[in-house]
Write a protein that binds this DNA or RNA. Structure first.
Length: 199
DNA sequence: GTATGGATCGGCT
DNA sequence: GCCGATCCATACA
């Protein structure tokens, strides 16, 4: 899988839902002092314009301002007192929307991820948004970063034909909970969530 | 200033 | 499957 090239911004759909689907099979690449760690995106969720579950629903604040950047920038926040979440901004500049990256299939730097997570099991290294952020040592310092150019964190080309993509409701939200805005790779063991959502 | 409730995880049953 | 930990951004007084 040729990941050693950043995704060009022009390749990214402007529309949030299209972007969430498009990112399945692409790669997240993290450059660390001790080496490169990367993974293939197997699960995403769209947080669209006017979405009551979206962090931009009530307008721009200091926390969520990265959601308003041109598509392809990182929005990173801290949730539940324990986990960082990685999002990719979508839509045109000034519009607050994005795509949550929910799970990765580890590709490169698996020993680095094991150290960052303190867990051996390959399947558990980046299955879940908090876990993948920990595996790649992602925190608020990377918030606002352009993911379409090489640097500490970027989006790489992955598969054009990743496999069959499923669609379901999103996980762990209460507002606007019934919309089918979650995308995942069918039959991939690195996808998070209950079996009932992954058929 | 205080209250509140998460886009979760890991451990236990 | 259930529950507690943990902390910060936000909302409101």
């Amino acid at each position: 899988m040729a990941i050693r090239r950043p995704l060009a911004r022009s390749e990214l759909p402007v529309d949030t839902v299209s972007l969430a689907r498009h990112l399945i099979g692409k790669a997240v690449v993290r450059e660390l002092p001790e080496g490169v760690a990367s993974g293939r995106i197997v699960e995403t969720e769209a947080y669209v314009v006017g979405d009551a579950a979206g962090h931009a629903y009530r307008g721009m604040t200091r926390r969520n301002q990265s959601l308003y950047l041109e598509r392809g920038h990182a929005y990173i926040y801290f949730a539940y007192g324990s986990s960082y979440m990685l999002n990719v901004s979508s839509e045109t500049p000034g519009i607050g929307a994005g795509v949550l990256i929910r799970a990765l299939e580890p590709l490169e730097g698996i020993p680095i991820m094991r150290l960052n997570r303190g867990v051996e099991r390959l399947r558990d290294l980046a299955r879940g948004p908090g876990r993948l952020a920990a595996a790649l040592r992602i925190d608020r310092r990377l918030d606002g970063l352009d993911l379409c150019r090489e640097g500490p964190l970027w989006l790489g080309c992955g598969d054009d034909e990743p496999g069959e993509i499923g669609r379901s409701i999103r996980i762990g939200i209460s507002q606007d909970a019934n919309r089918l805005l979650r995308f995942y790779l069918r039959d991939n063991p690195f996808v998070s969530g209950p079996r009932s959502l992954n058929e």
